[in-house]
Design a protein around this nucleic acid. Structure first.
Length: 440
RNA sequence: GCGAUUGUGGUGAAGUGGUUAACACACCGGCUUGUGGCGCCGGCAUUCGUGGGUUCGAUCCCCAUCAGUCGCCCCA
């Protein structure tokens, strides 16, 4: 028997309902912030990710899905969204568009070769946003506000926004030098990973989980202490804007992110929910002022974030998020082969009129067809058999009221529509009038 | 890349080195070929992830492999 590839999953109908609801909310919030959707290919030239994400990052050095196509091109399944969006932004010259700022969002599958566990898959979905064209901290603030609004739209409460600034290129370079000097003579006391990072990406030593509590790292210089005037100003303004919007955040001086392209602002959103397990970072992002130019575009700054949608989904389990309930308006029971032509005609009429309708395809007994109707959560059950055919009638049962009546066959559609239009009765679940919560 | 743990029907699961692999739910049929949800009766795993080994005999013991789950690393 064939089985799915390790680290992938099938979304079955009961799950797709939730995903559709999740996606809908994301589209709505994006609209509120005036971001427009962009869809890029799921594979790109390998080189793109090497140049953007960084050769020395774990993502590129050991997690990409690479292959050579029949034309001998080196291809990589995208491990994240920013590189593709930036590529598309440059290639399609979106910077020359009517609006000076491009505000884009995307949603779709990403691929990383990792060991699967809770909230982590080899094919996983991200929702991300990128805003190009302004260095203003106002745009950083908007991006963070946007991310927080998405989370709030799902009524997830226990979140924490962690914020830091690693400064512009100049500050970054200054800081890196200071850090290297500081660590140089004692680097041997740190873990082997850190010793490697010392050579390849010293910033990452800061958030090493193994060594974070050592005196050496506790007393290490922090990026915020090396911000030049411009960078400091940017960070201060951002904080002020967030305060103005009453968005809570915690400054984490050790927060650096795993991708090379960030400058100035970096942030993460953690949710402290049991259902998330160890992977409690649901969103990460930051500013990247030189990514566009380093990929061959004009010197245009950008800022963005990305959500892990599986993790968002896990977080939603904690808040009892449900997709649309399953139901049919009509289940049509047809008895006997001779009645089937009239049956499909009736069914078709109802479907053309927009009623959610279904029918039995397995010549089941009356009893079994009733069961099908129950399992499909049908409100109306219509029965059409020999007697009805002879009299041009049809028998209709309303499960909400329990009433059963016989009507003219041709009135089936009108009858159901009329009944559906009647003012809704008390919610069956909570017995309250006009209940919106139960979704019944 | 490292570590832990699991793998028995459609599902949840019990079980033992030896003959028919419990039980429950679901499903199918009947009681009842025109009124379901309840009840009763009956059916439903030639086989215990896969491959090999030990043994007279393996679902059970051993090895390998694949897969799931969780953690580390990393990330979203």
């Amino acid at each position: 028997m064939y089985q799915k590839i390790k680290g992938t999953y099938d979304l079955l109908p009961k799950d797709t309902k939730k995903w559709q609801a999740l996606e809908k909310t994301i589209h709505n919030v994006s609209k509120i912030y005036n971001y427009e959707e962009i869809r890029t290919p799921i594979f790109e030239n390998t080189e793109l990710f090497h140049r953007s994400v960084g050769l020395e990052t774990d993502i590129v050095s050991k997690e990409t899905y690479d292959f050579v196509d029949r034309g001998n091109r080196k291809i990589t399944l995208r491990p994240e969204g920013t590189a593709s969006v930036v590529r598309s932004y440059i290639e399609n010259k979106l910077y020359a568009d009517r609006l000076p700022i491009s505000k884009l969002y995307y949603m779709g599958p990403m691929f990383r070769y990792e060991r699967p566990q809770k909230g982590r898959y080899r094919q996983f979905a991200q929702f991300g946003a990128e805003a190009f064209g302004s260095e203003s901290p106002l745009l950083d603030a908007e991006i963070i506000s946007y991310a927080v609004s998405v989370i709030k739209a799902f009524k997830i409460k226990d979140i924490e926004v962690q914020l830091n600034s690693i400064g512009d290129q100049e500050s970054k370079t200054m800081y890196k030098a200071a850090l290297v000097t500081y660590l140089e003579k004692d680097i041997k006391t740190l873990c082997s990973d850190c010793q490697n990072r010392f050579e390849t990406n010293p910033l990452r030593i800061l958030d090493c989980k193994i060594d974070k509590d050592t005196e050496l790292l506790k007393n290490a210089p922090k990026p915020v202490d090396y911000l030049n005037k411009k960078s400091k100003n940017h960070f201060d303004k951002l904080c002020a804007y967030l305060d103005a919007m009453k968005i809570k955040y915690a400054i984490n001086k050790n927060l650096v992110r795993g991708l090379d392209y960030y400058t100035h602002t970096v942030f993460e959103v953690n949710a402290n929910l049991e259902t998330l397990g160890a992977q409690n970072t649901i969103c990460g992002g930051g500013r990247y002022n030189h990514l566009v130019s380093s990929l061959g575009g004009p010197n245009i700054p950008g800022v963005g974030f990305a959500f892990g949608l599986e993790r968002l989904m896990l977080a939603l389990e904690s808040v009892n998020f449900k997709g649309a309930p399953d139901y049919l308006h009509l289940f049509l029971i047809v008895l006997g082969e001779e009645q089937k032509e009239d049956g499909v005609k009736l069914l078709n009429r109802c479907r053309l009129g927009g009623l959610f309708s279904d029918i039995d395809f397995l010549d089941k007994s009356l009893k079994a067809q009733f069961k099908l109707a129950d399992n499909s959560n049908a409100r109306f059950i219509a029965i059409y058999g020999e007697n009805e055919k002879a009299n041009h009638k049809i028998n209709v049962k309303d499960k909400d009221t329990g009433k059963e009546i016989t009507i003219e066959r041709d009135q089936l559609y009108n009858h159901i529509i009329t009944e559906l239009m009647n003012p809704s009765q008390a919610c069956q679940t909570c017995k309250e009038e006009n209940c919106d919560n139960c979704g019944e």
